[in-house]
Amino acid sequence: MTAPRIMIVEDEALVALMVEDLLTDIGCRISGSFGAVDEALDYLKDAAAPPPALDGAVLDVNVGGTMVFPVAERLRAAGIPFVFATGYGALPRKGFEDVLVLNKPIDPILLEGAVRGFGQAA
């Protein structure tokens, strides 16, 4: 099976590197890592035509003081699965109750289970 291609949106460089390492260790490829919501939105540009090299995403909820929900909405519209990562606990937005929330620090086993849930084996 092909390795899932995962996008990361995380503003803290060390956390982003840790997530990249965890994903790489379980057989994923990093499709892009973004430290700002605007950068991630630019990458996704058109929800009707998502990047061909993207199978899922790990999204920090609060990215440099900006909530990541516009990225989540674009991914959802394109049918691309994602999980949230947060250090705050509860998700502060209605409409995403069905999305898995991983608490930071991210448990590698939970992350692997989430990625497998994207529909491809890691």
Rank of each mutant, 00 (worst) to 15 (best):
I80L: 05
N62L: 11
Q120N: 13
P52C: 11
A16Q: 13
L54R: 07
L22C: 07
M1Q: 12
D25R: 13
T86Y: 05
L110P: 03
A122M: 10
A53H: 13
G56K: 00
N62A: 06
G87D: 05
S33N: 13
Q120R: 13
L75S: 03
R5S: 06
R116A: 15
P108H: 10
C28A: 08
S33D: 12
A49Y: 15
F96R: 03
A16T: 09
F96D: 05
L111N: 01
D42H: 12
L111I: 11
N62E: 09
F82T: 03
F34L: 04
E20P: 02
F118H: 01
V9P: 00
R74I: 15
V71S: 01
G117L: 12
E10D: 04
F69H: 02
V99K: 02
V58D: 00
T24E: 09
A48T: 15
P105Y: 07
E73D: 15
F96Y: 13
G117E: 12
L22M: 15
F69Y: 08
D25A: 14
A85P: 01
D11F: 02
V15G: 05
P81C: 05
P105D: 12
P108I: 12
F96I: 12
A57D: 05
G95A: 14
G32P: 03
I109N: 10
A78I: 09
V19H: 02
L59P: 00
P50N: 10
M18H: 11
N103V: 14
G65D: 10
R74H: 14
A13I: 14
R5F: 07
G89M: 09
V71I: 11
L111Y: 02
M67Y: 13
L110G: 09
R74M: 15
I8Y: 03
E97Y: 08
D98Y: 05
L14W: 09
G79K: 05
I80V: 14
K94Y: 11
L102V: 14
D38G: 11
A13D: 14
A122T: 15
A16V: 06
I80C: 03
R76E: 11
A122P: 11
N103E: 15
D25W: 06
E12T: 10
D38M: 12
G95V: 13
V37F: 06
G79L: 07
E97C: 07
M7N: 03
P105N: 08
V19M: 05
M67D: 12
A36D: 15
A48I: 11
T66N: 10
D42S: 14
L54H: 09
G64H: 10
L91W: 10
F96M: 09
M67S: 08
A53K: 07
K104H: 10
N62P: 01
V15P: 00
L41I: 05
T86H: 06
V71C: 02
P92W: 03
R93Q: 13
D55S: 04
L23T: 00
A85Q: 04
F118N: 02
A85E: 03
E112A: 13
V37W: 02
V15C: 11
P81Q: 03
L44E: 01
L59H: 02
E39T: 08
V61L: 13
P51E: 06
E20V: 13
G117M: 09
P50R: 07
L100W: 04
R76G: 05
Y88L: 15
V61N: 02
Q120V: 15
D98N: 06
K45Y: 08
D46T: 13
A85K: 02
V83W: 02
V68W: 04
D60H: 08
V83Y: 01
C28V: 08
F118K: 00
D21P: 04
